[in-house]
C-alpha cells in the first residue's frame, strides 16, 4: 500500500497528555461528553421501568427499578472510545454487572454465547456474551456519582467500555441471549459487527 498523501501545512497538535497505551488508533481525547443518538431521547417513567433478561423468547428474570437499585452495585473508572473518533479517559460509572445480574437470576452461567440488547426508542446492539461477563460490562445507572441523565442514556445504559461506545446502548431495557450472533441497529447499517477500538473495527469489513 502506498504512503498516505501528506496534507500540506498540517501540523496537528497531539495532546501531550495523551498516553499512547490508552488512546486507540485514529482516536483523540476529549474532555467534554458528546451526545450522539439516532432519534428523540425517550422519556422514561421509573414507576414503569423494568430490566429483563431473556433466553431466546423465554423470560428469565425481570427487575423493577426498586429491585434493580437493590442489587449489589459496582463502581468502575474506565476509558471510553466513540467510533466518531473521540475518547474520554477515567470516566466513573456505577451500576450492576452482568455477572451480578446472572447470579441474581439464579443462572450459574449465561445460557447462550451471544446477546442482543434492546432499548427504549427501538435501538439494539449485539455482542458476544464473553464481552459482557467477567466484570467487563454493567448496566450503569450513575455517571460521575450522579444519576445518569436522559441524554446520556438514563435511567440505565449498558457500559461495555472495551468496545466502541455505540455498543454501550443507552436506555437499555432488555438483554436477550441468543445462540447465533445477529447484527443490531448500527451493525446493520455499515458499522462493524464487533467493534474493537484497538483493532479499529469501525465499519463492516475493518
Amino acid at each position: 500500500m502506498s504512503d498516505p498523501p501528506v496534507s500540506r501545512g498540517f501540523r496537528g497538535r497531539k495532546a501531550p497528555d495523551a498516553p499512547a497505551d490508552r488512546v486507540p488508533p485514529g482516536q483523540h481525547l476529549t474532555s467534554d461528553f458528546p451526545v450522539l443518538s439516532a432519534g428523540p431521547t425517550p422519556q422514561v417513567n421509573l414507576a414503569n421501568w423494568t430490566f429483563a433478561l431473556q433466553n431466546g423468547g423465554n423470560l428469565l428474570r425481570k427487575w423493577s427499578w426498586a429491585e434493580f437499585e437493590a442489587l449489589p452495585q459496582t463502581k468502575v473508572t474506565v476509558d471510553i472510545h466513540c467510533v466518531t473518533t473521540w475518547s474520554k479517559l477515567d470516566t466513573q460509572w456505577q451500576g450492576v454487572t452482568l455477572d451480578t445480574l446472572l447470579e441474581a437470576a439464579g443462572l450459574p452461567q449465561a445460557p447462550a454465547d451471544f446477546a442482543m440488547i434492546y432499548c427504549d426508542g427501538g435501538y439494539t446492539t449485539n455482542m458476544p456474551v464473553a464481552d459482557l461477563i467477567s466484570g467487563k460490562a454493567m448496566v450503569a445507572t450513575r455517571y460521575g456519582g450522579k444519576p445518569l441523565t436522559p441524554e446520556h442514556g438514563g435511567p440505565a445504559r449498558l457500559l461495555v467500555p472495551h468496545l466502541y461506545f455505540w455498543k454501550s446502548a443507552k436506555w437499555a431495557r432488555r438483554l436477550r441471549f441468543m445462540e447465533k450472533d445477529e447484527p443490531g441497529f448500527w451493525e446493520s447499517l455499515g458499522y462493524h459487527i464487533y467493534g474493537d477500538p484497538w483493532r479499529e473495527q469501525r465499519y463492516a469489513g475493518d
Binding site: 483523540h28 458528546p34 443518538s37 439516532a38 428523540p40 466518531t84 448500527w186
Partner: peptide, 25 residues
C-alpha cells in the same frame, strides 16, 4: 422532544448531533 411530544412518531424523527467532536452514531 417537542416534535415527539406534539405527536410525531419517534421513528419518523431522525437526529444527528454534533459538537466539537460530533458525528453519528
Amino acid at each position: 422532544a417537542a416534535l415527539h411530544d406534539l405527536g410525531h412518531a419517534a421513528d419518523r424523527i431522525k437526529t444527528e448531533r454534533f459538537g466539537p467532536t460530533g458525528g453519528p452514531p
